[in-house]
């Protein structure tokens, strides 16, 4: 009993706001209900199929190619979004221009748009006879029905994550810090790399992680532009749906399990890097 009390006191920070027990309990229940139980059923369902069957479906050549494509394109799109999202956030925070509110609202649009709409629109643009595709085709650049098309779709749906993560941190970064760097002789580039980037780094990483996670799970916008050739442009979520359509529920959950474990490991890793960099900044 005393041991329990001691360990409890260990987590518990004295605070003027009461209710740690209540809120902690509630969030745990909520997470269990919303996240943990649905995910656990996937594990349970997979566990029923046996190790060799799981291995055969979850790590087939087709599945492996799909994982590589899903995680690879999501990572590439995350990087592109980190760069351009930062640029958009920078412009939105630092400059006043007419129509700024409109641009800001435009950034959120990929959140609200049904992903299939985005997929159809992008396919129409980038198909070999589309508005943009017809000019890329003679140059030998194929976008639609290739991994590049998938990256473009994922960039589209992931942009708001980076912009909205970085924006408040950038706004909070005092102008005097930049001015201080300038008075000490730093160039604009040095100020950006050594002062601004470290300050917004954790937020940028958060934005990247969110965009990446969204990209890994994205289905609707990708299936139109990817062409869905097994082993080439077939993303993992599509493979799951294909399995379901063939009533191979075990196969679907096996693939889902592999994806889930991999995603969780990657996101946990990003979180750890973030905690470390934040500790360094706030120590």
């Amino acid at each position: 009993m005393t041991l329990f009390a001691a360990s409890r006191a260990g987590w518990r920070q004295p605070s003027v706001l009461p209710g740690f027990g209540l809120t902690f309990g509630f969030s745990l229940t909520w997470l269990t209900l919303i996240v943990l139980i649905p995910l656990a059923t996937i594990f349970l369902k997979t566990a029923g199929m046996g190790w060799s069957a799981f291995w055969a479906v979850g790590f087939s050549d087709r599945a492996l190619a799909a994982y590589r494509l899903s995680f690879g394109t999501a990572a590439a799109a995350g990087v592109v979004n980190a760069l351009f999202g930062l640029l958009v956030a920078w412009v939105l925070v630092r400059y006043q221009f007419p129509g700024k509110k409109l641009v800001s609202a435009l950034v959120d649009l990929p959140f609200a748009l049904p992903t299939a709409v985005a997929g159809i629109a992008l396919t129409a643009l980038y198909a070999p006879n589309g508005w943009i595709g017809q000019y890329l085709e003679p140059l030998g650049v194929k976008v639609a029905f290739t991994p590049i098309g998938i990256v473009i779709a994922l960039v589209f749906i992931g942009l708001p994550f980076v912009v909205r993560s970085v924006e408040p941190v950038l706004a909070d970064l005092g102008k005097d810090v930049e001015e201080a760097a300038a008075t000490l002789g730093a160039s604009r580039a040095q100020t950006f790399v050594r002062i601004i980037l470290p300050a917004i780094g954790p937020a940028l990483l958060t934005g990247f992680a969110l965009a990446f996670a969204r990209g890994v799970g994205e289905y609707g916008s990708v299936i139109f532009i990817s062409g869905n050739m097994p082993g080439k442009t077939e993303i993992a979520p599509l493979l799951i749906v294909t399995q379901l359509e063939q009533y191979a529920y075990d196969g679907a959950t096996a693939i889902a399990t592999v994806m889930m474990v991999a995603s969780f490991a990657i996101l946990l890793g990003i979180n750890l890097i973030q905690a470390w960099s934040r500790r360094r900044a706030m120590a």
């Binding site: 005092g174 005097d176 810090v177 001015e179 201080a180 300038a182 008075t183 730093a186 360094r280 900044a281």
Partner: peptide
């Protein structure tokens, strides 16, 4: 001349230290 070229030291009201 830009601020970096003027050779002045500047101390800000809210310190403006680099937190990281």
């Amino acid at each position: 001349r830009k601020v970096a070229e003027r050779g002045v030291g500047f101390v800000f009201q809210h310190y403006a230290l680099f937190r990281h």
